[in-house]
Design a binder for these strands. Structure first.
Lengths: 341, 341
DNA sequence: ATGAAAGCGCTAACAG
DNA sequence: CTGTTAGCGCTTTCAT
């Protein structure tokens, strides 16, 4: 049976207010009374109704997190970081996902607001379409903080990786290993991350006075595979290295290369971006640019909580560094990672 | 500014009730009135307060899902299946995770209840410790449905895979390929899944009159690696096949085998369980027992919704089949999977 | 230190 | 078809 505060009060012959105060550790209750009430509450396994509390307090202690895709561990790892951070402060996370669809994103934003979230933490899948919606939310008094993907049309607070620097690091590494004809498998340019990685590649190639080859290769393994097949089908191979904007497309490209009899890294060096779990397991362990997803989540959660307490603070962007993880696919001297010790 | 029903009513000079009815498409509102109200609501971007609605209706249209671990894509895929299924019926999911800790699990159950979830969908991480808590929840009128892991002490409704049959399939396949000295890398026996897989192995081995070798190898890659190292360190190798209760431990074992110079599948055949994403990417693509995670989620969601509408229905267990995915690690004639088309 | 009254935003039940 | 009253479970404010 679900018990209410009033029932407890009735059982103990005190007022609901006294029970409420005792249970929350509020002042104005005698020590003995508090003891009695808390003990009884535990005994009957009383659970406060947080909907009711949220209604009257106008604060649910729930943060709404909206990500593009539940099946991408990148987002989940970030959410895990947020979760750990906010749990310590008594907040919970209501997780929603947009399936990378602008309309769904809009409707999910609405639902989260409806459910009374205190702030909205969002990796926006449709920066173009939904910027104004986010602005509305912000205006209505609910803090909005962005992560990983920028929304250019407006200024929001957020936490992002230095995708540009990560890309330059990767490409410079390839050049340092003597590669000169480097292809970039670009992601979807509508996302700031893909765009920044592309720009990083271009900046380094330009500075080194090397010719740029850019192929749109999306996010996935299949599109990476197809992009590489297209490149290979052009006849005489005209590249000795590949920098992919996303690990899955790097892995797809790797498969296409190996199937075509091209040796990696001897003939073609390969670097990805993201350090997904499979990256170290694929047939040629993948060199890649790693991002600390937990750090992303933690920083974002802190930013959101800060905005909750200081709603008037100016928009703040936090930029997190990336790290190049060198494995075999880029042509480093071969050494087994797991043979350490 | 967040608007309320009453404000809308004031703006339009009608009663709150009329607005409420119009917005929910309830009967008893003239067509023109409905039009006017809906239009105005859209214009001012009204979002109903679902906390308030939930409070009065005693039904939040939120299902609480509790999983052991957010970073395991197995659970997330199942949640995705649930999400798709319940969204169509206007329900949302409040996701919580226990970090595989009994105490956290208990407290999360409490929080979910506090947040007014209509049902609890749980993959219990501590079947022993928390069975009574779940029973209490059930008694309090909130349907409890289990998934993947059984809780033996009580009878609950739930959806499970046929782990026993999956294991027999795997072991029989190895025997069919001529292997006779088959080792089982067992998971944690406290979980019904690990236990069922072990029993499946034992049943087949017993029936075939083959000697059993069982090694505890936990869930992870590292523990699988160590278990295999221990086996190999015993000197003369005494097995020609390995059936691991979990893919990660199979992958760890694979690494140990290859590092020790044992060829897979020639000298030792290997079968895992779970078909994790990396399974097909590892250096020797892994034969494994696959589970349809989305099917799990969908079946569970349906079961939960059904229990919501028929609270008195007797406990029902749904058992889902598994499927053996044959790749190279078990010694099937080598053929590239990806060369199709 | 304790209690009574009022109301958060919404809907069920009844009235007109 | 529309409005009024009451109350979901809780907390704030003001009494006592």
């Amino acid at each position: 049976m679900k018990r209410t505060l009033k029932q407890l009060a009735g059982d103990l012959n005190v007022s609901a207010m006294t029970v409420s105060r005792a249970l929350r550790g509020d002042v104005g209750v005698s020590e003995t009374m508090r003891q009695t009430i808390q003990e009884y509450a535990r005994e009957v396994n009383y659970q406060p109704n947080l909907l009711a509390r949220g209604l009257v307090m106008q604060r649910s202690h729930v943060l709404g997190v909206l990500i593009p895709d539940l099946s991408d561990s990148f987002w989940l790892d970030a959410v895990l970081g947020m979760e750990r951070t906010v749990r310590a402060e008594g907040y919970h996370i209501l997780l929603a996902h947009s399936s990378d669809t602008a309309a769904v994103e809009r409707s999910e934003i609405g639902t989260l607001i409806s459910r009374g979230v205190d702030a909205l933490l969002i990796a926006c899948c449709a920066p173009g379409d939904n910027a104004s919606v986010l602005a509305d939310v912000q205006t209505s008094g609910i803090p909005v903080v962005l992560f990983d993907r920028h929304v250019t049309a407006q200024t929001f607070s957020g936490v992002f990786f230095d995708d540009f620097a990560g890309a330059t690091q990767a490409v410079e590494h390839l050049i340092g290993l003597g590669r000169t004809r480097i292809v970039h498998l670009a992601g979807d340019e509508r996302f700031s991350t893909s765009h920044a990685r592309l720009e990083g590649y271009r900046a380094v190639m330009k500075k080194a006075d090397l010719p740029e080859t850019i192929v749109e290769a999306g996010f996935g393994e299949e599109s990476g595979f197809r992009a590489m097949r297209t490149l290979l089908d052009r006849g005489q191979r005209q590249f000795d290295a590949v920098f992919a904007a996303h690990d899955p497309s790097a892995i797809g490209a790797l498969r296409a290369l190996l199937e075509a009899g091209v040796s990696v890294p001897e003939e073609v060096a390969l670097v990805g971006f993201g350090n997904i779990r499979c990256a170290e397991h694929v047939s040629v362990p993948l060199t890649t640019v790693a991002q600390s997803r937990h750090a992303l989540g933690e920083a974002l959660a802190r930013l959101a909580l800060d905005r909750l307490h200081h709603p008037a603070a100016p928009p703040t962007e936090i930029v997190l560094p990336t790290q190049l993880i060198v494995r075999q696919s880029c042509g480093y001297p071969l050494r087994s990672e797991s043979s350490v010790q």
